[in-house]
């Protein structure tokens, strides 16, 4: 709609237009608002756990998947950081390589977080269980959508190749994944130890 838009036949895709500083500022601001909104349910769930179950931690919660999930998410996060670094150098194959690993580890994390939530060790009809399961489930669903975002970003970088003019998609995915990591660690520590 902008009057200055090009009249050429090229159809543009995400990441194919150069971003001005103002554009980047807008995107970062919008993402921040979005993440604030995403954090609200997590806060609500953490709060509700104390309302419903107090500080009780069920002794039978399985520890190893949570620890392993933390490691997997950390690795995934390190690979998205590597992806962002490659993006700064416009090293597209590097991004795709990093994202392959990041996507794999994120998938592992999704499965690992899913295990304690759905393996039936905790009684859902207990005050701790009834808050534990929805909280872990919410994190898992968030992570699943993040994972789809990572797939999309990787696919875009791979398909668009040389036509990419900005790497905002890569940076944004990295930010969201780290946000998820923080959410997960807070939830994990709170549900398992506090």
């Amino acid at each position: 709609m902008a009057a200055s838009s090009n009249q050429s036949n090229d159809v543009l895709y995400p990441m194919q237009t150069p971003l001005s500083r103002a554009d980047l500022f807008k995107l970062k601001g919008g993402l921040t608002l979005f993440l604030i909104g995403l954090a609200v349910p997590i806060l609500l769930l953490l709060e509700m756990r104390y309302v419903v179950a107090g500080g009780y931690v069920a002794p039978q919660v399985t520890q190893w998947p949570a620890i392993a999930a933390t490691v997997a998410m950390l690795l995934s996060g390190l690979f998205t950081v590597a992806g962002s670094k490659s993006a700064k150098k416009a090293n597209r194959p590097g991004i795709v390589r990093s994202y392959n690993w990041a996507i794999l580890f994120a998938l592992i994390a999704i499965i690992l977080i899913g295990i304690p939530a759905f393996n039936g060790v905790l009684d859902p009809v207990s005050h701790y269980g009834e808050t534990f399961i929805p909280t872990m489930g919410t994190i898992d669903v968030y992570l699943f959508f993040t994972w789809i975002g990572m797939l999309a970003t990787r696919s875009r970088v791979k398909r668009l190749g040389n036509k990419i003019e900005n790497y905002w998609g890569v940076y944004a995915t990295n930010i969201v994944l780290w946000f998820m990591f923080v959410c997960w660690v807070v939830t994990w520590v709170q549900l398992y130890y506090l």
């Binding site: 902008a2 895709y13 995400p14």
Partner: peptide
């Protein structure tokens, strides 16, 4: 919500 496509939106 990552990228800006508005420059492509002509009816």
């Amino acid at each position: 919500m990552s990228d800006d496509l508005e420059k492509n939106q002509q009816p």
